[in-house]
Design a protein around this nucleic acid. Sequence first.
DNA 1: TTGTATGCGTTATCAC
DNA 2: GTGATAACGCATACAA
Lengths: 338, 338
Amino acid sequence: MTNAMPPRPTSRDVAERAGVSQATVSLVLRDRWHGRVSPARAVAVRAAARELGYRPNLAARSLRLGRTRTALVVVPALTNEFFARMHAGAARVAGEDDVGVVLYSSPAGIEAAPDPFVSAEATLDGVLASSMAAGALTALSGNGLPLVMLDSEPGGGAAATVNPDIATGMRLVTRHLLGLGHRRFAHIAADVDSWTFGVRARVLAGELAAVPDARLVATERAPIDVRGGLAAADRALAAPGGATALVCDDDMLAVGSCKAARRRGLRVPDDVSVTGFDDLTVATAVEPELTTVHLPAEELGAAGMRALLAALRGEPGGTTVLPVSLAVRASTAPAPTR
Amino acid sequence: MTNAMPPRPTSRDVAERAGVSQATVSLVLRDRWHGRVSPARAVAVRAAARELGYRPNLAARSLRLGRTRTALVVVPALTNEFFARMHAGAARVAGEDDVGVVLYSSPAGIEAAPDPFVSAEATLDGVLASSMAAGALTALSGNGLPLVMLDSEPGGGAAATVNPDIATGMRLVTRHLLGLGHRRFAHIAADVDSWTFGVRARVLAGELAAVPDARLVATERAPIDVRGGLAAADRALAAPGGATALVCDDDMLAVGSCKAARRRGLRVPDDVSVTGFDDLTVATAVEPELTTVHLPAEELGAAGMRALLAALRGEPGGTTVLPVSLAVRASTAPAPTR
DNA sequence: TTGTATGCGTTATCAC
DNA sequence: GTGATAACGCATACAA
């Protein structure tokens, strides 16, 4: 039994089979034949292509066109559900426009953006980057590719920026808690120096400053995971001031914070209220379910990719802000009367 | 201010700057110059390339070589942490070998594998597919590309298969529960028809059959998420037989099962024990923390990619089985004495 | 040891 | 309307 794999058909093969020239094949298949090729031949070409299972060679096309119809999506970590959802949105939109997506999830997290741009620059049309530290941005914008930033500081060399309305999100959380009678807050913050977390800290502080007897009794930073949140909340709860509300930068931190509270014998939400941010699956997996800010992760990726595709077409881009909402669930309750 | 973006340097530009021919540049940069190019010139070429910031054009290289150094990784859903980790492992190994990864996460889940292979076949050297339904496999193997299957039925046209030791995992769970005195089991199963879940069901049944008074009092299928698990466990708990142990196919199902138990006024693990599978982050986020089977997700992806790279080199592949372990935590306890 | 020439498959520019 | 032909950037067989 011979196992000879038939070589992939080329446009020449299609031409031969359809009895036309190779150039005609290209015209017909790229839909640029109207008025230049007779309908009869066009039909014949299409038929031949189908029968042969012809697929254009992307490498050849890219070489000739100088464009690759490929965008790079950069996320800090794909194992974070938020970024996975963002990626899904971006990939969907790109796919609808026949643009491929190559993914780079920065192993070093949010800070570094080393090799990929160097090596990838060879073959990309644009870059969609998310939640990167301020410094990393410049490394990306330097290579001449259109760049769209997600969940990042507007401006700064990007062709466009798409952000969820973080400020409003934090405002909703704070006012929700304030309305519940809480006055002593602790901020369980992500120990990541990025725009998005800067906004959260600023808005929280600002909202509390506007209410005479409200105070931020502690701010604890932690790596964004359950253990980090647990440790940080433990420190915050040990601090003087007796916080009754733990405002967390992320759902994972909130989950850890709930654990910390319980280990100290405090009930959530009776003794202490806890809020998250993102509305990941885990927010409704734990009990009590988390009151959290719902961020449109997939839509963020989708809008970002749309902005990138627009930039690729040469259209100017600005800053888009996506609305967020507060998901009020069971981890918040009226402040305890002491 | 002129904004003329300098065109990307080609190997010709490097040649010109180094005062050599383009062919020499190619030889030097591909490290095939030993004995053919004088060391002095080689040094000059490297210097010129560095100064110009030369990057080879991948499209041109692919066209010339006929290979793309790109592998397709197929996962059912990236938003599932297990697959995200698998992807990370695969991407890491591929990167070490300068192979790119293009990701396809089947929107339709595990069943369908529609377009990507058609359109992607143009530009891929191999495929790494994970946890696909039996039918989808054939669609992949048909296109002549080397294929490595992950967490799937061994054999069946794939160049190699890499699986976590699912059977042992389920055996460990069952015996753990049996050792705790449980005799009435319910299986909260994933409603997905794939090899991995088939094995779980089979082993669970087999292990229970080997213990005279042990019984599987209910099997309930559910979509793999918290709500699905909740609903299925609720049905299982309502069924006659009074299961004291809920064996779940997945951590998400286990989380939902815990919720279902609590809503019925049952305590976990005092009244009912619950086990998961996968050991996702959520397993240690909820309380009680889940007793579950730890699957080496990242290593699975890494081993799979190694197998694919080996297949690309023409080496024969077989079936690799990766060890798993039981993470005993707080969701299991001795069976209640009634 | 080095340079020249050719072709990979595609698209676009031209004569016909 | 249609079909040659040239280029895209690289790797290599071959000539010098």
